[in-house]
Simulated scan of single mutants.
Amino acid sequence: MTTNTTHRQQQVFTPDYLSLCKSSREREQSESLAATDNWAHVDKAKVHADWDTLYKEIAPLIASGAMADAPEVQALVARHHAIISRFYEPSREGYIGMGLFYQEDTSMRECHNSYHSQLADYMRDAICVFAVARL
């Protein structure tokens, strides 16, 4: 996988690194679930409402052709990261793993793509850009 970190520079992720990212997400989520009584501290209805709002803001950007590294997209991904951080603070690799999960897991792909047919792939790319630059 290649994501645009800038229009001139690209970040290439090896299969081994992507595997590390996937396992990091799984481990971090499992540890967090165990430590927090299945995320009892999180207002899940509020989180889902916030994701709904966020994805409805991202979908038109995809339709307009905005790149995953565009400042307005990255500002929305920062909000996504803040929502995720209500559950636990993901590492760089764990957050990249989340983007991969959105793309690869059938139910997550269907959920995201219900907002826009390319949202799962777009979120994967935008999350990778964000993680490399900010985590």
Rank of each mutant, 00 (worst) to 15 (best):
T36P: 10
Y115E: 05
F13T: 02
S24V: 02
P15E: 03
S24M: 06
Q10Y: 13
H112Q: 10
S91W: 03
T53R: 07
D16F: 03
E89R: 04
T106Q: 11
S24F: 01
D69S: 06
C111H: 13
E31M: 12
A133I: 06
A120Y: 13
H116M: 00
H116T: 02
S114F: 04
A63E: 15
Q11G: 06
D125W: 02
P60N: 01
D16G: 00
R8P: 14
R134L: 01
H112W: 07
W39Y: 14
R134A: 09
S32V: 05
L100A: 10
S32C: 14
P60Q: 01
T3V: 12
P90R: 01
T3L: 05
V47P: 15
S64H: 07
K22T: 13
M108S: 15
D37G: 08
N4W: 14
P15W: 01
R25D: 04
G65L: 03
K56C: 09
Q74M: 02
E110H: 08
S117W: 05
M1C: 05
S85A: 09
A70Q: 08
T106E: 14
W51I: 06
H81W: 06
T2L: 07
W39L: 04
V73D: 07
R134G: 03
G99E: 03
M123D: 00
S85E: 15
L76I: 04
L18K: 12
A68C: 15
Y88D: 13
H48Q: 14
Y95P: 03
Y102G: 13
Q118G: 08
R27V: 02
K46N: 04
R79L: 13
R92G: 09
S64I: 00
M123T: 09
Q9E: 15
A131T: 07
E110C: 01
M1V: 10
H41Y: 05
Q10R: 14
R109Y: 09
A120Q: 10
A45L: 11
A45V: 15
K46Y: 05
T36Y: 10
